[in-house]
Amino acid sequence: MRFLWSSTLLVVLTAPMAAHAQVRWVSPDSDAVFHGWRGQVQELVLRRGKGGKQSVCLVGQADRQSAVTQGIVIWPAQKQVITWHPSTVDDPKSLADETNVIDTAKDVVASDAEVGTSTYLVTRKWLTDTERACRRYGVTVKVEGPEGRK
């Protein structure tokens, strides 16, 4: 009986956390899916960025439930956070072509209530937590943007 109570309590206490706990941060250097990430970041900045040196942070996110691994690219100079699903056919532009983009000037809101049922808005807290995780688990590189583009 005691075991039943304690196991029931454990389930009740851990269930609400499970959805978030399934996603864990990984270094791009530790997962082969991100091989060639430096070239991808360079191509991204050259194709979509402005001139000048800029820093870009990349961190991996592995979802245990669905076995999906994706990259999160934080690019302050462009005010963008990009969710990147690397290509299987060695496409050197797969990051530069990525369409899942958060515009941090428009798509970041103060509260969960403002996120509502949107598929893409995020909270300020989510952004802060993600930036922190990128600094801790990811890699930050300085990349030169295209000459002459402002």
């Binding site: 969960d112 598929t119 989510w126």
Partner: peptide
């Protein structure tokens, strides 16, 4: 089912 979000970006709300 009533909503979806990019995985890792949090739930739509309580």
């Amino acid at each position: 089912v009533a909503a979806w979000r990019t995985t890792g970006r949090g739930a739509p709300g309580r």
